[in-house]
Simulated scan of single mutants.
Amino acid sequence: MSIFLFRCIRKLRLHALCYRLLYPFCRSTFGNVEENATAAARRLAVLHPDVNSTSLYKNRMMQPFAYDLQIIIPAYNAGPYIEECIESVLSQRTDFSMLVTVVNDGSTDDTLSVLRKYEERKDFCLINQENKGFSGARNAALEQIRARYIMFVDADDKIPRNAVDVLMRTAIRTNADIVEGGYTRFTDDEIISTFRHREQTKADWRILYGFPVGKVYKSYLFADVHFPPGYWFEDTICLYLLYPRCRKVAVVSDVVYQYRQNEQGITSTSRGRIKTLDALWVTRRILADSRRLGICPTSSLYDAFLQDLQINLTRFVSLDETVHRDAFGVTAALLREYFPGFR
């Protein structure tokens, strides 16, 4: 019921009004928790500890780069879809040189045997490792960066044949640090929805969405950053560590990514699980990493922080009310520490 109510408030754009009406009550109710954020964090850690793994890591830049674009595909038990994904990448219509790096992350199905069929290709690199999760798989490929630009594709998704050419031509023409395109969501039977950007190039990175796919990145952005191991919601590095270091970003109207609606993915299966507290822990960890990288707390970053908290609320909403209160206390402490003086 609370999830339905929350979504209705968002759809009706009543969240600002609700805030103004409820602020005095919330202030008095949660005030003691705010003052005791350390104790709140300790109680939450009993339920689900913070793995406390950093996003800062020195990847090896293999310069001079041998390729224009390195496409990284993490694969775990992706047998039903991996071949369709690989074929969509290898069949790109483009003159840009590509290296497709696929990381078999300890699959126990036939994923590895499918990938073995491509091993002899010069534009294909297979990394086979024990299971290390989504972050560990992407990071294995990032340890040796061999191209000027990087792109991520998930093993159950695919990309249209013009995706690389559209993104790379825009990147070269605009000299943007990140270029993002539109996407479709599909099932085995039909296309569910399509999203397209209005084309623009700006210094304001808030025109980008928070997921890592459907984009090309200048590889320098990953020279000292990788995905923090052990967390769910590791994509949070986009908002706090990658986007704020961009001088210029661009979006294109073309659909460049095809996202398979996966009912077994984290987004669908995480609701009500205590590990969703990773959303709080990873935000705390990455904010600390952003400070170590010298990223300034700008208004754009503050907006991203507030949006991140709004998303976290939808992840925590099925958890116990005591968890909500403690998460609020920790979050309020993060706001005071990293964004003092912001409205």
Rank of each mutant, 00 (worst) to 15 (best):
L14T: 15
C238N: 12
L90K: 02
F4D: 15
T174W: 02
S290I: 08
R343Y: 11
A327S: 13
E120S: 13
C85R: 06
T108P: 10
R42N: 06
I159G: 06
F96K: 09
T54Q: 02
I150Y: 08
Y23L: 15
D154C: 01
K158H: 14
S135N: 07
Y231T: 13
I266K: 09
F227W: 01
E35I: 13
Y57G: 15
A16L: 13
A250S: 10
I311M: 07
I127Y: 11
T38Q: 04
M168I: 04
K58D: 14
L44I: 00
R20G: 13
A163K: 14
L21N: 12
R13F: 15
T187I: 07
N312T: 11
D156H: 03
T322A: 05
D68C: 10
L242V: 15
R196G: 05
L287M: 07
T269V: 06
D177K: 12
G31E: 07
R138P: 00
F222E: 02
C85M: 05
I73K: 04
V251E: 00
A141V: 01
R20F: 11
A39N: 05
F65T: 13
G265F: 02
V89K: 02
G210R: 05
P212D: 05
R336V: 11
N139C: 02
Y209F: 14
D154N: 01
I274K: 02
F342V: 15
F4S: 14
M98C: 12
Y209K: 12
Y240D: 10
D278Q: 04
R93N: 11
L287C: 10
F96M: 07
F316I: 08
V330Y: 00
V103T: 04
H48I: 01
Y302A: 14
G133K: 03
L56H: 07
E321Q: 08
K122W: 06
G182I: 09
S97Y: 07
S88N: 11
D278H: 03
Q70N: 10
N77R: 03
T29N: 11
S113R: 05
I295L: 00
N36A: 13
T94N: 04
Y217M: 00
A66H: 05
V89L: 00
R245L: 07
R148L: 08
R60Q: 14
V46S: 05
Y76A: 11
P74R: 03
T187Y: 09
F316S: 07
I86C: 05
T201M: 01
A16Y: 12
R245S: 09
S268G: 11
L335Y: 10
V153F: 03
L56Y: 06
I178E: 07
I274H: 03
C18W: 15
P297G: 07
S290N: 10
Y217T: 02
E120A: 10
E337Y: 03
R271Y: 08
F227R: 00
R93Y: 09
D157M: 02
S290M: 08
P160W: 01
K215A: 01
A163W: 04
F134D: 12
E321R: 02
P49Q: 00
N262S: 05
V317M: 01
I286D: 01
P228E: 00
I71C: 09
T331E: 02
M98P: 14
G136A: 01
R116N: 13
G79D: 14
